[in-house]
């Protein structure tokens, strides 16, 4: 979960802006205030990411419960492995345990901050590894309320940030930050992140669709600290305001620095993943 610091030399940009705006004091003040909000937003986003640096690799298990308007539930289970790649997006592998007809289906992703992710799928019945397009960002992940872009590696570079002020959510003091996706094919115009001021983790995210209408709200809870440093959520609940459907993700069996390396993240290891 590294990011390119070179991209965030915001001070010279602010300086130029100030110079340009000298003639019109009002515009200048607004622009400077805007820039300050952007700088502050970015600063918090970087702080959130930075505290996760150095986790190396991790493993976890996930249960996803899809709940439709009538309350009918369907369950998916999967396990994941992530490798931190300094200077680029993470490498990850996931394997399905449920539903049974997709058991053993596995995916391998090389995520990148500024270019398209690389992705492969392993189909166990045919023993076939297929390179697939990673363009599908906004489509649903396994029929859930989570889009592919919601569950993919969250890199700082993927958004432009604006700090909107401090608030309280469920008794927790938060920074409210607007994030506008900079990558192509996002299904959102913007997200509002609510970042716990103390732990520097998101506890709520609001998503706005392509027409800028409120679409979904994600509540993140049951955080636990691993290895005295890395916060991981135990539960994520995505509520779709437009359809009334929701999806609950619960995470368990977290393990860190289990000795995974680059060689565990290629198409050969994808075929062997259990």
């Amino acid at each position: 979960m590294m990011f390119n610091n070179a991209k965030y030399q915001s001070t010279p940009r602010a300086f130029c802006l100030a110079a340009l705006c000298l003639s019109t004091t009002i515009v200048c003040t607004t622009a400077l205030a805007d820039q300050a909000a952007k700088d502050r937003g970015l600063e918090i986003a970087i702080a959130v990411q930075a505290q996760d640096d150095g986790f190396g690799d991790s493993e976890s298990a996930m249960t996803m419960t899809l709940i439709n308007r009538a309350g009918k539930e369907s369950v998916r289970r999967m396990r994941s492995r992530i490798l931190e790649v300094p200077g680029d997006g993470d490498k990850s592998m996931s394997i399905f345990d449920e539903p049974a007809d997709v058991k053993g289906t596995a995916s391998l992703t090389y995520s990148h901050a500024n270019e398209a992710d690389e992705q492969w799928l392993f189909l166990p019945a045919l023993k076939r590894v297929k390179r697939i397009s990673s363009k599908n960002k906004s489509g649903p992940f396994m029929g859930s309320e989570f889009a592919f872009e919601d569950i993919s590696s969250q890199e700082v570079d993927k958004y432009d940030y604006t700090y909107l002020g401090d608030e309280t959510v469920d008794g927790i003091a938060v920074h409210k930050i607007e994030a506008v996706p900079t990558y192509k094919h996002s299904g959102y115009t913007r997200l509002i992140n609510y970042i716990d001021t103390e732990r520097l983790v998101p506890i709520k995210v609001e998503y706005f669709d392509r027409k800028n209408a409120a679409l979904k709200t994600l509540s993140i809870s049951d955080y636990e600290k691993h290895m005295d440093k890395y916060w991981r959520a135990g539960k994520m609940e995505m509520q779709n305001q437009q359809t009334g459907k929701r999806t609950v993700l619960t995470w368990s069996d977290y393990a860190f620095q289990t000795g995974l390396s680059e060689k565990d993240f290629n198409s050969n290891s994808l075929k062997r993943l259990r």
């Binding site: 599908n136 489509g139 299904g187």
Partner: peptide
């Protein structure tokens, strides 16, 4: 060639 998430429906 794939068309993804057609009209925000999620379908491809």
């Amino acid at each position: 060639y794939s068309f993804y998430d057609i009209q925000g429906s999620g379908a491809d």
